[in-house]
């Protein structure tokens, strides 16, 4: 076991982890931030996407110890300071961009990273960016619409 320290959603946190502990497991099990979901075991589905130092990362592909000293943001950190839904989150609600909600945290984190990189993406650019996030419910139609709406609202 080793101690890892990082900043998660603006708070400094530390915990005891094994070398093999994934960031996704650390966030869920040590920090009880269960908004980050595990949908596969081959780093394909994207339900576990978080931001590490501002970049979208599948948290199941990275060990907790690798993000020592980094700044991590999870879905729990995406709300406005007053607790209301942030721009991307609100766009997903307004446009029915989610159904069962399981892929949603990863989708929102990927969408936010996309809009950071490209504030006015085309539909094609949105669809290509979401290549690493699988949704089984929505057929992506309303996810694309949500991200377009978030781009306008931002």
């Amino acid at each position: 076991m080793a101690t890892v320290t990082m900043t998660v959603n603006g708070k400094s946190v530390s915990g005891e982890v094994e070398g093999r502990t994934l960031l996704s497991d650390f966030v869920r099990n040590n920090l009880n931030l269960t908004g980050t979901h595990i949908g596969c075991d081959t780093s394909q589905c994207g339900a576990c996407v978080v931001h590490v130092d501002g970049k979208a990362v599948k948290s199941c592909t990275i060990f907790a110890l690798e993000v020592e000293g980094s700044t991590v943001k999870t879905i729990e950190g995406m709300a406005n300071p007053d607790g209301s839904l942030g721009v991307v989150q609100q766009a997903f609600q307004d446009n029915h961009g989610l159904q069962c909600g399981f892929c949603t945290p990863g989708m929102v984190m990927s969408a936010a990273a996309l809009l950071d990189e490209n504030p006015n993406p085309t539909e094609t650019e949105i669809r290509e960016y979401l290549e690493g996030n699988i949704c089984r419910c929505t057929g992506y139609h309303n996810i694309v619409k949500s991200i377009q709406a978030a781009a306008v609202a931002a």
């Binding site: 931030l33 269960t34 908004g35 980050t36 979901h37 999870t74 879905i75 729990e76 995406m78 709300a79 839904l85 989150q89 997903f92 609600q93 989610l98 909600g101 399981f102 949603t104 945290p105 929102v108």
Partner: peptide, 12 residues
């Protein structure tokens, strides 16, 4: 229900 799902408060 979206509010809990979008803010990471869903309980699966």
């Amino acid at each position: 229900e979206d509010i809990r799902f979008l803010s990471g408060n869903g309980k699966y």
